[in-house]
Each structure stands twice: as C-alpha cells, then as structure tokens.
C-alpha cells in the first residue's frame, strides 16, 4: 500500500503523466476546434500517423526539428482541407469521410515511408527534441523534473491550450466559430461565411492533430514505426466530449489519461507477478470509458455537429 502512495509522491510519475498527455493535448485541441465549428473529424487517427511520418521524415532529410514541426502541421492541414472539402463543401457524411481519411492517411504514410526506405529493416533514427535544461528552474526539486525537464513540444502543447482558449473565449473569431457549430443560419444571416469558418477550423484543427503525431516520432521516440499511434487519436475523440468542448477541461482530460497510463506502467512492475499485464494495459481505456459515462451524459454537444449546411436552404 505504501508503494502505491509512493508512486504519487515521485516526480517521475508526474513527469511521465505530462509526457504521455502531450500528444493527446494536441489531438484533443484539434478535435475540439473542428467540432466547435460543427465538423466531427474522425480522420484524427490517420492524421496522427501522417504527422508522425512527415515530421520525422523532414528531419531525417535534414530539415531541422522546427522545420519538421512545420512540415507535420502542413501535412495535417492538407488532410484537413481534404476532409473539409468532402464534409463542408460537399456536405458528405462526416463519419464516412473521417474514417476514410484515417484509412487513407495511415496507408499513405506507410506507403511513403516504404517507398522512401525500401530496404531498411531497422527504422533510421533522428536526433529528437531534448529535455529542456533551464538554469535554476530545471534544478528545482519536484517542479523541475515535472515541468522544466520536458521537451519543447510539451511546452508548445501547453501554449496551444492557452492560445485556443484565448481565441475561443476572448476573440470575435472564437464567437463566430462557436456560433457556426451551434446555428450556421445565424452566422450566414449576419453576412459571415459558414463555409470559410468551418474550413478554417477543420484545417487548423487537423494541423494540431498532426503535431500530436509528430510528438511521437520527434520527441517521445526518435524513429517512425508502423502502428505507433495505437489509438491515441480515438482517445482524443472521447476526451473532447469529456472536456465539454472547453480547452481548459481538455487539458485536464489529457492529463488524467496520462496519469492513468503512467500509473498502470508502475503498478505493472509492482504487482505484475500477481495480475496479468494486459489488465493494466486495459485500465486507462476502461477508466476513460467510466469517466466518459459519468461526464458525457450531461454533454452539451454543439447543436450543429454533424449537420452539413448549404447556402439558400433553411
């Protein structure tokens, strides 16, 4: 029992929670932005893979880490544009288009990887983002390892939380995005473009999703593997409901999941002899489902989510 309490007292547990949460923060913010404008983006899982592959490959080809970030965001934006054209302009089913984007993105990323590296058996490595080393701050007890020995991408994720919050709550653009996800007719009646607002949100949201993938190959690991995204995109779709489409709660949700995951690894080493490891691997997902059941029953969905809008049709 004492061991259990000790887990929560160790700085490594909290540092790991934040590290595991980082790609989810990007993903859930991206999904939030899309859904706030009224578009569900189930392409997220595929866009994660695309971001992971393109970001890594850009660095491998010699572009530098921040160049890789830009490439990943742009490729995510491209897939967002594709999803937007299908669902916003043509008004096709958001579910079908999103799943299509996921299948296409996953396969296209793997195809590009194999085409570029036909003969390689062990994935080539890049020099990933390193842990920050800030004088004084990084050396603080507890706080230092948890916050100031993370990589720059974790800080980018936290900055994005603040940025998305600020846009949604403090700018006219945010008001318009929330309005277009609730009642597109209200936006159209005021002479604003429903199509542009939704396309913009989906493209920007997809770019954020791709950064979540890029974190995996450029910060958490240093190479691209098949299957490395492993359902993180889907978790974000659940987390955005858990977060009631609010950036602050999205951060909380991602951290909570990160904690579950960090906890299961540690419990596995402590109690792994008695309980099968699969139970622990399952635990974060089961706990997420339970948390969702409790929170999502009262979820206040954007009213126009999933509903396409066409000009001149009321």
């Amino acid at each position: 029992m004492m061991d259990f309490v000790n887990i929560f007292l160790s700085d490594s547990f909290w540092a790991a929670s934040l590290r595991i949460a980082t790609p989810l923060i990007f993903g859930v913010l991206g999904a939030l932005l899309c859904e706030r404008s009224g578009v569900l983006n189930l392409g997220i899982e595929g866009i994660f893979v695309v971001g992971a592959m393109t970001g890594w490959m850009a660095v491998w080809l010699g572009m530098g880490l921040w160049g890789g970030i830009v490439v990943a965001a742009l490729s995510g934006a491209l897939f967002g544009l594709f999803h937007g054209i299908l669902t916003v302009i043509f008004g096709l089913s958001q579910h079908v288009s999103g799943l299509g984007i996921t299948l296409f993105g996953t396969s296209a990323a793997s195809f590009a990887y194999r085409t570029a590296l036909p003969q390689v058996s062990s994935p080539p490595r890049i020099e990933p983002f390193r842990a920050l080393d800030i004088p004084i701050l990084s050396d603080l007890p507890f706080i230092g390892p948890v916050l100031f020995q993370q990589t720059a991408m974790t800080w980018l994720a936290l900055f994005m939380v603040a940025l998305v919050w600020w846009v949604m709550e403090k700018t006219a653009l945010g008001v318009a995005i929330k309005a277009v996800g609730d009642n597109p007719d209200a936006v159209n009646a005021q002479g604003l473009s429903v199509i542009k607002l939704r396309m913009g949100s989906v493209i920007a949201g997809s770019a954020l999703m791709a950064l979540g993938g890029a974190f995996l190959t450029m910060s958490a690991f240093d190479a691209f593997f098949f299957g490395m995204v492993n359902g993180r995109g889907w978790i974000c779709i659940a987390l955005v409901i858990f977060a009631s489409w609010q950036p602050g709660k999205a951060l909380m949700g991602a951290l909570l999941f990160g904690m579950f995951d960090a906890l299961q690894v540690r419990l596995q080493t402590q109690a792994g002899a008695v309980i099968p490891g699969q139970i622990f691997l399952m635990a974060p997902y089961v706990l997420s489902i339970i948390a969702l059941v409790i929170v999502a029953r009262k979820a206040d969905y954007p009213r126009a989510l999933l509903t396409p809008w066409f000009k001149g049709q009321r």
């Binding site: 309005a179 996800g181 609730d182 209200a186 936006v187 005021q190 002479g191």
Partner: peptide, 13 residues
C-alpha cells in the same frame, strides 16, 4: 446561436 450570450449573438458579424 444558443450556446452564446445575448451580447455575443448581437455582435456576431
């Protein structure tokens, strides 16, 4: 837009 305040609805656009 039901999810916005009265003021935000009026200022929208």
């Amino acid at each position: 837009a039901e999810n916005l305040s009265v003021l935000d609805n009026i200022l929208l656009g």
